[in-house]
Computed example of a mutant assay.
Amino acid sequence: MKKSLIACSTLFALNKDIQKGFKLAKVGEWKGHRDGSFKLELKDLEEIKKNFDDSQIDAVIDLDHATLFYGTGEAYGWIKELEIKEDSIFVNKVEWLEQGKELLESKKYKYISPVLEPNTIDPVTGNNIGWTLHSAAITNRPFLEDLGEVIANNKSNKGDKSMEKTAEELEAENKKLQEENEKLQNEKIEQKVDVAIAANKIRPEQKETLIAMGKADPTNFEKFLDEAKPLVQQPQNNIYANNKGGGQPQNKDTSLSDEELKA
């Protein structure tokens, strides 16, 4: 192998800001790379992940290997998390910037190409820490064509339609949930009012007023129902009438008026 950096490419599918599951590299041996043959074993993939996890920065995704060729390059995305599954290493989370998403959504670019460094020297200790992920690039010149099945294999993205919903769809779903919750709450309020009527705590004609109170002021509504006592009608016939009662039966209604409920 002539150079210490290896760039290889793979096809992947774009999701929203955070995408899961596109393949970065796999176990195997390749003899036709322009910089010389190379081989990746499972221990090498584990080394890549460990060094990435130990790093203090995310791995940059640039355009056409600008970081590799020029030492740095404008970011089109950031690799946030790696994961090893069977004989492959995946980018489990990636944050795409707008310019990166635009290139992929328009299909001007279709592939991701990782740059792997087999003999990385730790800048602090000076030790050889082995394989690392140097950077990755959006490109149209894939080397590892056998990784082109990443879209078909990416079941978590292809099968999960909820990950592909637009902001408008999510907003509509949220609005629907809010409406259903409001309907449920209103039904509970009406049920409580019906129970209070059945218990003779309020008059039937006050039902709508109490329902409106429950919607506008749930706290005081609950307090009112808790403290409400059954309506008492005290007969005052000739036996219990006072001297000024005239001897006619009278009923006393102790319920609150609509105006008092609204106060």
Rank of each mutant, 00 (worst) to 15 (best):
F52Y: 12
D122K: 10
Y76R: 07
E259I: 09
K165A: 13
T132F: 08
T219D: 14
L261P: 01
K229G: 03
D87N: 14
F90W: 09
L103H: 04
A263M: 07
N154G: 13
Y70A: 10
R203Q: 15
S135L: 10
I6D: 02
M213T: 02
T166M: 12
A198E: 15
K16L: 08
G21A: 06
K262L: 13
A152R: 12
V232Y: 03
G71S: 07
T67N: 05
E169L: 12
L68I: 02
Q206R: 14
G148C: 12
A66M: 06
V124A: 10
W131V: 13
D44E: 02
G159P: 01
E46P: 00
K50E: 09
S37Q: 08
N157D: 07
D35F: 09
E187T: 10
Q185E: 15
E182P: 03
R141T: 15
D35H: 08
L40M: 10
G28E: 02
A198T: 13
I57E: 10
N200D: 12
E29V: 09
L231I: 15
N237C: 04
Q19H: 05
A196E: 04
E29H: 09
T67M: 06
E95M: 06
I112E: 00
N181C: 07
D44L: 04
N181Y: 11
I151V: 15
T72H: 08
Q191M: 14
P235T: 08
A137E: 08
I18G: 01
L103W: 05
E95S: 10
K223L: 13
G126P: 05
K2T: 09
F143V: 11
L104R: 13
E105H: 06
E145R: 14
K16C: 04
Y240D: 07
V232P: 00
V91Y: 01
K229T: 08
V94G: 01
C8I: 11
E29S: 14
K101W: 02
K192F: 02
Q248G: 04
F22Y: 08
F221K: 10
K85Q: 10
D54S: 13
